[in-house]
């Protein structure tokens, strides 16, 4: 059960971090200067082309090592980075690349006039982002972001490989101790499935709310 809690914590943390990176990345890709745009293009391409497992290993070791070296250079003692924080950071970094693309597409789908009108009203960029861009892009972004959330819950299983104690690793240990492999793996599968199905319900609600006032998909077809 601790494993399940860790799984959900990481998934939520990684998705939130990924969303922040995604919003920043999408803004950079759309409105940034040429250098920022190229760097972001490299970031999203590389992260989406390399297997998550390899990225997790690379970032997990490189990230902790880097932080420790920086701390040592500044003169602090080495710290042990908790698996939770490292897991969230690594998965968030991966999720950020995907959500950058989703959010960029969603912002492009907003009718241009809405943003121009907001600018004409003299809104500051921050206010514009908060009041117009984010709410207006939400209905376009939610299907993609929902997929990302589901991927995040399943990607947490990969952290078992670097030895982080979450649902899959907990299952493996429990199964190894009791020798009842099939039972434990089936149970863990059921738990993951349950998480997915419950999230689907919640996402449906959120999407219905975000789309309020818009023509429904069935009518538009």
């Amino acid at each position: 059960m601790v494993g399940l809690l860790h799984t959900i914590e990481i998934a939520i943390g990684a998705t939130c971090l990924g969303l922040l990176i995604g919003i920043g990345g999408a803004y950079g890709k759309l409105y940034g200067g040429p250098v920022v745009r190229d760097l972001l293009a490299v970031y999203t391409t590389v992260v989406r082309a390399v297997p998550e497992l390899v990225l997790i290993l690379l970032l997990y070791y490189a990230g902790t090592d880097l932080i420790n070296q920086v701390l040592a250079a500044v003169g602090y003692q080495r710290i042990d980075i908790s698996g939770l924080a490292a897991g969230i950071a690594v998965l968030g970094f991966v999720q950020g690349a995907y959500s950058t693309e989703v959010i960029r597409g969603a912002i492009l789908a907003i009718p241009q006039g809405q943003i121009e009108a907001a600018r004409a009203y003299g809104m500051s960029p921050g206010l514009l982002l908060r009041r117009i861009t984010l709410p207006a892009m939400l209905p376009f972004a939610i299907p993609g972001l929902a997929n990302l959330w589901l991927i995040a819950t399943k990607d947490t299983a990969l952290l078992a490989v670097v030895g982080f104690y979450e649902l899959t690793l907990a299952t493996r240990q429990a199964a190894g101790v009791t020798k009842a492999y099939l039972t434990f793996y089936l149970a863990a599968g059921a738990i993951y499935l349950l998480v997915t199905l419950v999230s689907n319900l919640i996402i449906g609600r959120i999407e219905a709310r975000a789309r309020r006032g818009m023509p429904s998909l069935k009518e538009a077809r």
């Binding site: 819950t153 490989v161 492999y181 099939l182 089936l186």
Partner: peptide
């Protein structure tokens, strides 16, 4: 399709290898 898409691949793999394989 729902079951396959709702559970992590790593878990499916371990279920088949350790679970079925031990049976």
């Amino acid at each position: 399709c729902t079951i396959i898409r709702g559970t992590p691949l790593l878990l499916q793999l371990w279920l088949l290898y350790y679970g079925l394989g031990s049976l």
